[in-house]
Amino acid sequence: MGKLSRFIFTTLVLFILWLFLTSTFKSQEVLIGLIFSAIIALFAYNSFTEQGLKNLSPKKVFCAFLYLPYFFWQMIKANFDVAYRVLHPKMPISPGIVHVKTKMKTDLGKLVVANSITLTPGTLTLDVIGDDMLIHWIHVKTTDVEKASEEIPGVFEKCLKEFLE
């Protein structure tokens, strides 16, 4: 991607962060924020983003908005699941570490899938080695690699495939 587009994207993200942090629209503050975002972006754009302004294409933004409610719903379900297991007197858990394969190719995709897996019912990402993910499952249903891959990251990958790749 072009350097300019990556630079502009970094500046934009930093500037929005600045606006949220100061939460004011006085012209002096906005100007200072813009200048400093540009200076920081000059040094940091190389490691900050790979895709640049492509990240803001309408399709991706739309998919992100579709993904977020689903993600929050899963998170709330995960919390009630943990609450049930904590409060149950016998603690119905049968934990184990299972191995699944992910289809995501980019680093950002793997990061988002791993974080989503951590926050959803009963699963926690322990390690990511290339395409293999090691997942601690609080109530193991299957130890087979294929079936576990269907069960755990499958649903997320269908949503995220569009949005990140």
Binding site: S94, P95, G96, I97, D127, I129, L134
Partner: peptide
């Protein structure tokens, strides 16, 4: 170590772990 009632430990199969 994992809990003694744990069901499975696939992590042993990976050299990195």
């Amino acid at each position: 170590k994992l809990w003694e009632k744990s069901v499975v430990d696939k992590c042993k199969e990976f050299a990195e772990c």
